[in-house]
Structures are given as C-alpha cells and as structure tokens.
Design a protein around this nucleic acid. Structure first.
Length: 251
DNA sequence: AATACCATTCCGGGGTCTCA
DNA sequence: TGAGACCCCGGAATGGTATT
C-alpha cells in the first residue's frame, strides 16, 4: 500500500465577469493549475514525485490574487498541458498499486473530483480513500474548537526546516508529507470521499390514518361505528401513545 | 476575492405530559 | 380532543477560519 500525498493550486473566476458561460462557473468555481505530489511506500520513504502546471481552459487568466499567492503567471501556464493530459500523467504516476491519498484539508479531494468531472473524464480509476492530515494535526495540537491549523504553522510546530516557499503545490505536498510522518500512527484511518454527501433522510411527519383505524374496528366488530365510538377510539389511540397509564414495576 | 466548512446560535415544529 | 407548558431535535442562519 502506497501513500500519494498531493496538493493543488487553483485559479478562480475573475472579479469582473467576462463572457464566460455562467453555467460553467457554477459547475467549477476553482480550476486546478498545479498538481504536486509525492509517493511514499508503507515505510514512508519517498519513492517517486510528480509536479505539473496546468493550462486552464475555463479561467484563462490567472486571478491577480492567485498570482500573488502562488507566483504562478498566465504566461507560465500557457505553455503547459491542459488538465486531461496532466491528469493522465498523474494517474500513471499513481500507478496500479493500492493507494491512499494524504491531503491537507478536505477541499483538495473535492476539487480534484470536480475538475475530473468537468472535463468529462472518468472518476472510476481514481481512489476515493484519503487521509485529511490537517484534521489529525489539529487534533494532535488540540486546536481550539472550530479552528484548523494552517500548513505553515504545522510545519513550524514540528520544527521542520522550511527551505522552499509555501503555496506551491509541490512544496506544500512535500511539507504535508513531512508533517504526515510526524503524526503517523496506527490510529490514523482513511475516509472515503462521497461526491453526494449522505444527507440524512428526515423523519416524515407522523400522521394518523384515522380512516384506516376506524375501518379496522368496523371490520373487527362487523358494523359501523357511531360518532361517539369514533371519538372514543381516536382518544384511546392517542392516550395509548402517551403511555400515561403504563404502570411502573416498582408500584 | 470567492468559496467551503465548522461550530454556534436561534427558531419552530413536533412530541410528551397534564388537565379538563 | 384541545389547550397550555415543557423539552428536544433538526434546519436555517451566522460568524469565524481556512483554502486557493
């Protein structure tokens, strides 16, 4: 079993809307422009790495905010392959052995699947098993309720040397791997990503089928019930439900 | 800037219980 | 049954934190 630790950088919709199809925007708010990854074996040795920029096809110019954060420019990505090609290479890199993804937060698995679907590619060949490293680290350091530890903080808390910049998909994947090694233990279990979050089916309102109730009595007694009887039956049924006449054993 | 997630908070509906 | 008091739970709204 291998671990694939990966990180993504996204581009996003420009602040000023252009002629981009609004239908697509709702489908894909974040377009992947870099995938960085490391493959670790079960002893957590790095056995292979992957790093690729991606030419966006939906939001073709890098949002200034994203460029500032990631230092990735429109020029840079323009000479790169588009997502389908890079994804194919990424799958090759992952290989055919059984794997578990390790990611920082849960957003990256979600966005990866969204991007795959956006390009009408199959999601069947990609593992849905993942470990949210950020979640385990936040627990490890007892992060206050409702807060998560950022990658940079985690790296500093573990005194991991920071030789390279953050907000680069490969570097962040590398740091995530280093942090993963620090917290790795046998209590860590992977989760399975569901694209359709299992929304709990809410209880339907309890509605008494009065007609069926009365009909049952009429069948049992082989006659029509009078108005009074109907009223008494209904009341008795409700009273039965309240359990207010149940005797306690101690009494 | 845009988005997602999480915990917290708030509200209302439903159920329960009691009384008449 | 119907009214009123109470409680509990789920959904909606909110605010903070994180992601790029």
């Amino acid at each position: 079993m291998n671990y694939i630790i990966y990180d993504l950088e996204f581009n996003q919709r420009p602040s000023v809307l252009t002629n981009i199809d609004s239908n697509n925007i709702s489908k894909l708010p974040f377009e992947i422009i870099q995938i960085g990854a490391l493959k670790l074996n079960k002893n957590l040795d790095t056995i292979s790495t992957f790093n690729a920029l991606i030419k966006p096809t939906l939001y073709k110019t890098i949002h200034p905010f994203v460029e500032d954060l990631t230092k990735i420019t429109t020029e840079q990505v323009n000479s790169c392959d588009t997502f389908p090609e890079v994804y194919k290479n990424f799958l090759n890199f992952i290989g055919s052995e059984e794997i578990t993804f390790c990611i920082w937060g849960s957003a990256d698995i979600k966005e990866l699947i969204k991007n795959i679907k956006f390009h009408n590619l199959s999601t069947s060949s990609i593992s849905k098993k993942y470990i949210d490293v950020q979640n385990y680290v936040s627990k490890h350091f007892n992060a206050p309720n409702g807060t998560k530890i950022g990658l940079k903080n985690a790296v500093e808390l573990f005194n991991i040397a920071t030789k390279t910049e953050f907000h680069d998909a490969f570097n962040d994947a590398f740091y995530t791997a280093e942090v993963f090694k620090k917290i790795y233990n046998h209590n860590i279990v992977s989760k399975t990503y569901e694209s359709f979050p299992s929304r709990r089916l809410h209880q339907p309102k309890e509605k008494i089928d009065t007609n069926a109730l009365i009909f049952q009595f009429e069948k049992m007694y082989n006659r029509k019930m009078t108005k009074d009887e109907i009223s008494i039956i209904k009341t008795a049924y409700m009273m039965g439900k309240t359990k207010q006449f149940i005797k306690n054993e101690s009494e």
